[in-house]
Design a protein around this nucleic acid. Structure first.
Length: 480
RNA sequence: CGGGGAUUGGCGCAGUUGGUAGCGCGCACGCUUCGGGUGCGUGAGGCCGUGGGUUCGAGUCCCACAUCCCCGACCA
């Protein structure tokens, strides 16, 4: 409300990151708080997150996991147990050294992720093969003191869901890690309408402490990649340092095989960028807190009564169909003001009803993502709107998918590769390189391996870095 | 930490050569207006980042410090 960004987002001269911030302000999603990098999620932004949460949580439970909650503060010694893990997270930890007016004997770390404290619990919870698999999920906030925060994309504190599982066999853990990545992919593509490339991370990009890391990567309109979710096969790394063991059917002691996986409020950033336009936010109906807004026109005539009763009838119909709607009949705002309010908030469908419409038993219907205002009969409008919502959901995905495909190229040579990166594209290349090669490419082009994709339409060739023949394909891109 | 920029009502900014602060938006109230951000009036709201210095007098000049933003390293 304080920032009148809504007018400025129509200026196309703005660069992308400014546009991104303007959309967030105009839609009233979030704002910076006084502590560097921390974010206040405002009610409208949180309502969108809640919808994501609900849908994801249902899937997580449907796949056999149970929710639990572990402490925010973790003894520093826990983190230090896993060598790679502590190395990866040390630079970005927030540490509590004083409490209760005294200096603590052992500092407490504000969780950057919960593998350690959950494994400490697992080591007590798991005794027998009958206790496996242990499938736990947690909805929580975590803190990582990142150097360069950006609203939603990289904030000091963020909300997420983190799954932690323990299995009897390596294969089962591998299946779990891949299955949950698949769940994420389905969620992001079907619910958020954002197409992704799924694959495995290279050693360089791997999670600190994981044996294998899987990822789904989206490409934003400005040509930057955004990791939308991640899933790890942790092997027995944590099991061994935390002593998570069980007795198998032969009465032999075994370490468990584990996974962890998570998605965060970063997805909100992806959602904003993937679909938004110069008018502001555009929400896929699946996560829109308000799917349909009914805007009234005219207030001063005898027609008002008719308009009101017509709208009441329509609302009844929408309610029965389970459509999330709201009516904007503010009398102290002009039509334009009312329209822009909902446009910048990304409401998928807007219906305008005034005296002229009531007279001909019709309503003006406008979908946020495309097209022009259409005058449709009031009779059966609810069903029509329901169908439109479904269509918006699909259209948004298809539009984003076309963009991703248009910005994905196969590069056989270093020159073609660099050109593709410079154009903000995903470059698919034959790859047999090492971390050293990745670092050299990163230094020169700022591009990193987003993943080694599970699926792609390319056959191998000579690795662009080493020249070695290979069948492996890597996707490179610049990221946030 | 390296390189740039900034700090003045809630937000965005102006403030010429030093004279004790102004605009837009927003907010409150009233009237007006509703087919794509209506117009007008009235009003509330500021130790000008902090600490020193120069001066009769500092938002303005000098010094130091702090904080924030942008570009790199980090990342869900």
């Amino acid at each position: 409300m304080a920032v009148d960004a809504s007018r400025s987002i129509t200026k196309q001269s703005k660069d992308f990151s400014q546009w991104y911030l303007d959309v967030i302000a105009a839609a009233d999603l979030a704002e910076h708080s006084d502590v560097k990098g921390s974010m206040i999620i405002k009610p409208y932004g949180y309502a969108i997150w809640e919808r994501m949460q609900r849908i994801l949580d249902d899937r997580i439970k449907a796949t056999g996991h149970q929710n639990a909650y572990f402490p925010l503060l973790i003894p520093e010694s826990y983190l230090k147990k896993e060598k790679e893990h502590v190395k990866g997270f040390s630079p970005e930890l927030a540490v509590v050294t004083h409490a209760g007016g005294e200096k603590l004997d052992e500092p407490l770390v504000v969780r950057p992720t919960s593998e350690t404290i959950i494994n400490e619990a697992f080591s007590r919870w798991i005794q027998s093969w009958r206790d496996l698999p242990m499938l736990i999920n947690q909805w929580a906030n975590v803190v990582r003191w990142e150097l360069r925060p950006r609203l939603f994309l990289r904030t000091t504190e963020f909300l997420w869901q983190e799954g932690h599982t323990a299995h009897a066999t390596e294969q089962e853990a591998e299946e779990e890690a891949r299955r949950m990545l698949g769940e994420y992919r389905t969620f992001v593509e079907k619910t958020l309408a954002i197409p992704v490339v799924a694959g495995e991370k290279t050693e360089m990009e791997r999670f600190a402490g994981a044996a294998r890391t899987y990822t789904i990567e989206a490409l934003m309109p400005d040509g930057k990649a955004l990791q939308m979710g991640t899933s790890h096969n942790l092997g027995q790394n944590f099991a061994k340092v935390f002593g998570v063991k069980y007795l198998d059917k032969n009465n032999e002691e075994q370490f468990v095989w584990q996974t962890s996986w998570g998605v965060s409020t970063r997805m909100m950033g992806g959602l904003i960028m993937a679909h938004g336009d110069d008018g502001g936010l555009i929400l896929p109906p699946a996560v829109a807190p308000v799917q349909v807004v009914v805007v009234t026109i005219g207030t001063n005539s005898a027609e008002k009564k008719k308009v009101t009763s017509t709208i009441a009838e329509l609302c009844g119909e929408l309610g029965k169909l389970g459509v999330r709607f709201t009516v904007d009949d503010r009398e102290n705002e002009t039509l334009g003001a009312k329209i822009y309010t909902w446009e910048k908030k990304g409401v998928p469908i807007r219906i305008e009803i005034g005296p002229k419409d009531v007279a001909v038993k019709k309503a003006q219907v406008k979908r946020r993502d495309a097209g022009v205002k259409e005058q449709l009969p009031l009779a059966g409008l609810g069903k029509k709107v329901e169908a439109l919502l479904a269509d918006v959901q699909v259209s948004l995905f298809e539009k984003a998918k076309a963009r991703l495909e248009g910005k994905s190229v196969f590069a056989k040579t270093m020159d073609a590769f660099e050109a593709a990166i410079e154009e903000g594209k995903f470059a698919y290349v034959p790859w047999a390189g090492s971390t050293v090669d990745e670092l050299r490419i990163k230094e020169k082009t700022k591009a990193t391996v987003r993943c080694l994709p599970f699926e792609h339409g390319y056959s191998g060739g000579a690795c662009i870095a080493t020249g070695k023949k290979t069948n492996t394909i890597a996707v490179f891109g610049r990221s946030y």
